[in-house]
């Protein structure tokens, strides 16, 4: 318990020191809020933005984009990964296609996202999907490839007589930890794609859009506010997911982290 308190105090102290140094440099060395907004500039910008009421809307819009992309990536990535990881024919058939598409940077899909979906939530969601899909697919695929043979054989000897039963009762539960790691990586990539997609004008709301918009307006303290909100939201999403996975899905792996 004591160690815990000490850890927290040290963390707070480090943040405080950085804030003070930042404030001093901004005020006395740089001296121009446009080049480097100070802590107090950012704080008052944050309060103003809170008052204007768009902050929550932008956060909600961004989360919606993110949700669409991640959920779509999960719904398509996991079954496809299972198919390719379990059935050799599916692997041989789909692998060349996947390997061709995978190296395309997700942001390169932005033009077609706009042409196909217009300036809609789906367009932004599609770009996030393009970033999140492959990490989930490859993690699921690799996880299925790595299911220990002895589990599969035990399943067979105990009466799993179809591929469906072996997947449902043996391979999928065995693969959950690796799939969860893949989803975590996918969420990180997706969050980055979110900002880029919104910045490129796929949407006229959202944290990424506001960040870019305020840059055009030369409201640099606001830009910093959006940067920090993006960082914190990403962190919170990751924490919530990790917590859920550890508590709900991976109780059988005590002490290990997804």
């Amino acid at each position: 318990m004591k160690q815990q308190t000490q850890k927290r105090l040290l963390g707070i102290a480090a943040v405080a020191v950085v804030a003070i140094v930042w404030q001093i440099i901004a005020d006395y060395v740089v001296g121009r809020s446009f080049i480097l907004p100070s802590v107090t500039d950012v704080a008052s910008a944050f309060i103003n933005l809170l008052g204007s009421g768009t902050l929550l809307t932008d956060l909600a819009v961004s989360l919606e984009h993110f949700g669409i992309g991640i959920i779509a990536a999960f719904i398509l990535g996991v079954p496809l990964g299972i198919l390719m990881g379990w059935f050799r024919v599916a692997d041989h058939l789909l692998d060349p296609i996947i390997e061709t598409l995978r190296p395309i940077p997700p942001l390169a899909w932005i033009p077609f996202a706009i042409i196909w979906f217009g300036l809609t939530t789906q367009a932004a969601g599609f770009v996030i999907f393009a970033g999140a899909f492959f990490p989930i697919l490859t993690a699921t695929y690799a996880a299925f490839r790595d299911v220990p043979k002895v589990f599969v054989e035990a399943g067979k000897v105990l009466g799993c007589d179809t591929s469906f039963e072996l997947i449902r009762y043996v391979a999928l539960p065995a693969a959950v930890p690796a799939i969860a790691s893949g989803v975590r990586i996918a969420m990180g990539v997706g969050w980055m794609c979110l900002v880029a997609a919104e910045m490129f004008g796929v949407s006229t709301y959202g944290l990424g859009y506001q960040l870019w918009h305020n840059y055009y307006l030369h409201q640099m303290p606001n830009v910093v506010v959006y940067m920090l909100i993006l960082g914190f939201t990403g962190l919170i999403i990751d924490r919530i997911f990790r917590n859920y996975v550890d508590k709900q899905l991976l109780r059988w792996r005590a002490g290990e982290v997804a």
Partner: peptide, 30 residues
């Protein structure tokens, strides 16, 4: 393979995601 022939493997083959009771009940569940 058939559940009429029970097998115990050299490696640990219990399903780590199932509790003892549900490991033992696995065959009956199938």
């Amino acid at each position: 393979p058939d559940p009429k022939r029970g097998m115990v493997f050299q490696e640990y083959s219990l399903f780590p995601w199932r509790r003892v009771i549900d490991n033992v009940a696995f065959g009956l569940e199938m």
